[in-house]
Amino acid sequence: MPQHPITDAKIRCCGDIPSMFTSRGHADGHPAARHGSGGDLCVDPGNGQVWGTAAVARGLAPAACRQTFHRGSGRQGQPDPGTCPGCVWLQGANDQWTWPGAHRGHPGQAGVYSWVQCHPEPTTASILSKKAVEGLSALVIDVKFGGAAVFPDQEKARELARALVGVGADLGLRVAAALTAMDNPLGRNVGHTLEVEEALLCLDGTGPPDLRDLVTRLGGVLLWLSGHAGSSAQGTARIATALDDGSARRRFEQMLEAQGVDSNLARSLCSGTPAQRRQLLPHAREQEELHAPADGTVESVQALPLALVLHELGAGRSRAGEPIRLGVGAELLVDVGQSLSRGTPWLRVHLDGPALSDSQRRALQAALVLSDRAPFTAPSPFAELILPPTAAQP
Rank of each mutant, 00 (worst) to 15 (best):
L171I: 03
V116K: 08
R34A: 03
G38C: 08
E331K: 02
V175T: 14
H291I: 03
P388K: 00
R158K: 11
D295K: 15
G92L: 13
G205S: 10
G111C: 06
Q109V: 12
L160S: 11
A266I: 08
D40C: 08
G72I: 10
Q76D: 00
L364W: 06
R66Y: 04
S247H: 01
Q76A: 11
E299V: 04
E134C: 08
D295S: 09
R251G: 06
A248K: 02
G205H: 13
P209H: 06
D80R: 14
S126N: 08
L313R: 01
A392F: 04
D213C: 03
P100A: 11
L306D: 00
G101F: 03
A229Q: 11
W51D: 07
R278G: 04
A149W: 05
R58I: 07
M1Y: 14
Q302W: 10
A63I: 06
A93Q: 15
T216P: 05
R217Y: 02
G327T: 06
D170S: 08
G191D: 04
G235E: 12
G353I: 06
F382G: 04
R34F: 00
C14F: 13
A284Y: 02
G77P: 03
Q287W: 09
P31G: 10
L256Q: 09
G146S: 00
S359T: 13
V88S: 15
G353C: 04
N94I: 07
A378L: 03
S231L: 03
L256K: 07
E384A: 05
S357K: 02
S247Y: 02
R104T: 11
G105N: 08
A233F: 13
G205C: 14
P388C: 01
R319S: 07
H35P: 00
G327E: 10
E288R: 15
R267E: 02
H103I: 00
S357I: 05
S37C: 13
P354K: 06
Q109M: 07
R238I: 09
A237G: 07
S23H: 12
L385W: 07
E289Q: 13
Q117R: 14
Q76C: 01
T123W: 09
Q78Y: 14
E121G: 01
L356F: 07
